[in-house]
């Protein structure tokens, strides 16, 4: 499959997603406005806490705001790219129209990842980045170019991790069919990534960093922007996410060979 074929597929799917999202004007506007509401909802508690203390577990307000901003970005990307696709695939497997997806001459894993993009969630992701930008501009010292690059790399690695996790969840739907609950679980776990993992102690911190890599996804990029992330940790994170993506792909291919298709 050539790069142009992939690009063509992505553009075509985005086009459809845009048309579907804009089909009801009122709901398009409402969803966009709602997503800003959620940003405020996420930021305000943090500001309240820091009214009373200058420092929580070694994180100042602006440093913690980095984590919150990254969390909002992640939430937006999840809502735009991951969750709607998950719901769509599970639905397709259940009613059998997944057959048509399998019949397209495009890699199926790619196709199901872009099949139902929710563009109204993208402003949410964007406003997360704005929060990160504002918080970063108030840091002292300001993050260097290398720090920003490291943070961006970590964000991508985090997304790859989530995508891998999500792929495995979808693959299990070939056997269990109903997995939408898993997406709720996934979302609740991610909620823990709202605060720096440093807020948590002992076993919880360990679990959130390495078992369910939520902390890794939001806290590590924030640490990179603070210039506090050791290079080994950066490498380890990229390695883990690459490895996990490959594992997810293997699971996916195995699952496809055992797909039984809903009978007609």
């Amino acid at each position: 499959m050539s790069a142009t074929a992939v690009l063509r597929a992505v553009v075509a799917e985005l086009r459809v997603a845009g048309m579907l999202a804009m089909r009801y004007r009122a709901s398009f506007l409402a969803e966009t406005v709602m997503s800003f509401g959620w940003v405020a909802w996420t930021v305000i508690p943090l500001l309240v806490v820091y009214e009373y203390r200058a420092d929580v577990q070694g994180w100042t307000r602006d440093q913690a705001l980095l984590v919150v901003g990254l969390f909002i970005t992640l939430e937006g990307l999840l809502g735009a790219l991951v969750e709607p696709n998950l719901r769509a695939v599970v639905e397709q497997v259940r009613d059998g129209t997944f057959d048509y997806t399998l019949l397209k001459p495009i890699d199926t894993q790619l196709l199901v990842s872009i099949h139902r993009i929710q563009p109204t969630e993208l402003p949410h992701a964007l406003s997360g980045l704005v929060v990160v930008g504002v918080a970063a501009s108030r840091l002292d010292p300001l993050p260097g170019l290398g720090d920003v690059a490291a943070a961006a790399l970590l964000l991508v690695a985090g997304l790859m991790l989530l995508h891998g996790l999500w792929t495995i969840v979808v693959a299990t739907s070939f056997w269990f069919v109903r997995v939408d609950n898993l997406s709720v679980l996934l979302r609740s776990l991610l909620d823990a990534g709202r605060w720096p993992v440093g807020y948590y102690r002992g076993i919880v911190r360990f679990v959130l960093t390495w078992i369910v890599p939520v902390g890794l996804i939001t806290t590590f990029p924030a640490m990179a922007l603070r210039g506090q992330l050791q290079p080994q940790l950066l490498l380890a994170t990229c390695g883990v996410s690459l490895g996990f993506s490959l594992l997810a792909r293997a699971v996916w291919r195995f699952a496809l060979r055992h797909y039984t298709s809903a009978s007609s």
Binding site: E13, V16, D95, G96, D99, P105, S264
Partner: peptide, 27 residues
């Protein structure tokens, strides 16, 4: 493969849009 009991058309959009999507996917 055409299955009389399953549809691939995008339900909420005109059929033309499904054709355009398939055109792109099949290159």
């Amino acid at each position: 493969l055409v299955m009389g009991q399953k549809q691939q058309l995008l339900w909420d959009l005109p059929a033309r849009e499904t054709f355009e999507l398939n055109r792109a996917l099949f290159g």
